[in-house]
Structure formats: C-alpha cells, structure tokens
C-alpha cells in the first residue's frame, strides 16, 4: 500500500516503513538504544533525502526513548538530577548541532558531514565495543571476576571543581564533565539524526562511573529530551520533519522495541555488547565504503528555492 509523504514529497510503501520501524525497534529494545544510527541510513536508502531523514528520525527516537524511560522510571532506575545536568548541556548542544546542520546544508556539504561522522564515530565506537566485550567474554571463561565499578579508582575528572552528589547513582563528580558529555551527545545527535544512546551509555560508565542500574534509564531521559527538542528545532528552522513518516516509524518502533527487550534479556551482557559492537561497526564500514568508492553518479541536485 503506497502512502504519500507530505514533507519528503515521495510515495512510499507503508508496510516497508512499518517493517523498518519494527526491525530497528527490535534492535533498539534488545540493546537499550534509540536505533537512530540504523534508521537514518535505512531511510536514506529508500529514497528519503538525508536532511528529511535526520529530522524525522529525531521524533521517532523521542517516542521509543519515552516508552523506555517510563518503564525505567517505574523501576526507579532514573537519576533525575544527573539527567537534568546532562540536559543543560544537551539542549545547547542540540541547538548548536541544528545550526551547523543548516549551515552545512547551505554549503552543499551536509551529506559529506553526515557520512564522515558516521564513519569515524561508528567505526571507533563499534571497534571499542567489540574489543571490550571480547575481553570480558574471555575473562569470564577464565574465571576472572569482571569489575565494572572500581570504587577507589579516581581519574583526573574527579579532581575538577563544582562537585555535585548524585544520590540515586551514588556518585560524587564535577558538573563540568557531565555538562560537556550532554553537549557532545546533543550536538552529535542533531547532526547525525541519532539519539546517541550507544555513545552516552559507555561515556557515563567509563568517565563518570555511573552504575549500570541507573545508566540506561538516565540515558533514555536525556535522549528523549534532546530528540524531542531536535524535532521542534528542525521543524522550526528547516521545515524538514515529516510527521506522517515519523508516525509510521514510531508505531513500528515502539512495538518492535517490546519484543526486542524480551529477546535481549535472554542474552548475557557481554554477548549483547559484542553483537551491538559488530552492528555499529558494520554500519560504520558501510558508510566508509560509500565515501571511498566512486559513486555511480558523480552529480547530484539540491533545491535552493522553489518559486510558486
């Protein structure tokens, strides 16, 4: 069944989009991530322009992270104070990202920027995740206990001023690195059309030593607010958010996420991280292939101005 997308100006098969929403939702539920880094490339692949894809996926991630955040909230697994401070950076980062997005689009380099960010970020994060999880799997086999949180180990980050106590996460850290992490995630999310959950969770664990109990719930609250505000900002500045496309994606995404979450509980943490790492790396390599291999068509067109 074909449906006409009013902003993307393109007819698409509603079941194809719904199926993509379901598949990405399944993965996002399984790994506890937004799945934007998969959804945006898929939409570009079916013919949605990169700009509309990035802007519309933001609202899709807002929906799936809200549904996730609510269930973590009920389990009291959200550190609201930490989330609020991350958000203070996140909102400003998102605004900066939307601004850069608009500027690059005017300079005809948006596609390149999206491609390059995907390659560097996904390859690096995917590689690290694979390395870390393989090590954890070997350790578990050799019977060495894995210490996710070493209470005594302080890094230079803990020496920074403006220290705050986050009760639910039971950490005592400076506000500066928290704010910076929020800014980075908001900034990257707005440009790449990703929630940044797969970046934020490791950052919170490794840099701030946030315990695993609160890290995913807190990260989902941040993702929710940055993506909801990215939706509003993209709509206000670039008029690129396709509400019809977003609604179909959301519907598929939230359903898929429920099944994914159930599947995820059957796999151990290290193997889950290894799978996610492989997935992230594969998407990164796919983008590097695109940048490095001579494109079929060297020419492309961008509409500058439509005159009625």
């Amino acid at each position: 069944m074909q449906i006409y997308l009013p902003i993307a100006d393109l007819p698409v098969n509603i079941f194809l989009i719904l199926g993509m929403g379901l598949a990405v939702g399944f993965i996002s539920g399984m790994f506890g991530i937004g799945g934007g880094f998969l959804m945006t490339p898929l939409l570009i692949f079916v013919g949605v322009s990169p700009a509309v894809a990035v802007a519309s996926v933001a609202s899709h991630i807002a929906a799936s992270s809200f549904s996730g955040a609510l269930s973590y909230w009920r389990k009291r697994a959200v550190d609201l104070a930490l989330a609020c401070l991350l958000l203070a950076g996140g909102i400003i980062g998102t605004a900066a990202g939307v601004w850069l997005f608009t500027t690059l689009r005017a300079l005809d380099q948006l596609d390149l920027m999206i491609g390059l960010s995907y390659v560097t970020l996904l390859s690096a994060v995917g590689g690290l995740m694979i390395y870390e999880s393989v090590r954890a799997i070997f350790r578990a086999k050799q019977g060495i206990p894995v210490q996710m949180r070493r209470p005594g180990s302080h890094t230079w980050l803990h020496g920074l001023p403006l220290k705050l106590r986050f009760k639910r996460s039971m950490i005592y850290v400076s506000a500066i690195p928290v704010w910076i992490i929020g800014f980075i995630i908001g900034f990257i999310g707005a440009i790449m059309g990703i929630g940044g959950g797969f970046l934020l969770v490791p950052m919170l664990i490794y840099f701030l030593r946030v315990p695993t109990a609160t890290v995913i719930g807190t990260s989902m609250v941040l993702t929710l607010v940055t993506m909801a505000s990215a939706t509003v900002m993209h709509a206000a500045t670039n008029q690129l958010v396709d509400a019809v496309l977003a609604l179909i994606l959301m519907a598929g995404g939230v359903i898929g996420a429920q099944f994914g979450a159930r599947a995820g509980q059957k796999i151990s943490g290290e193997w889950l991280r290894l799978l996610l790492g492989l997935l992230v790396l594969a998407v990164g390599l796919r983008f590097s292939f695109e940048l490095g291999v001579k494109p079929d068509d060297l020419f492309s067109i961008r509409v500058v101005e439509t005159t009625p």
């Binding site: 609202s59 929906a63 809200f66 609510l70 909801a228 709509a235 206000a236």
Partner: peptide, 15 residues
C-alpha cells in the same frame, strides 16, 4: 514541531 514531539510522547506512553 511541538505537535510532532507531542505525538512522539503519546506514542511512547501508549506503548
């Protein structure tokens, strides 16, 4: 944009 964001929240809450 606000309406789309609200729609996202409603969908997430509903799910």
């Amino acid at each position: 944009g606000l309406a789309t964001a609200m729609m996202a929240l409603l969908t997430g809450w509903f799910a």
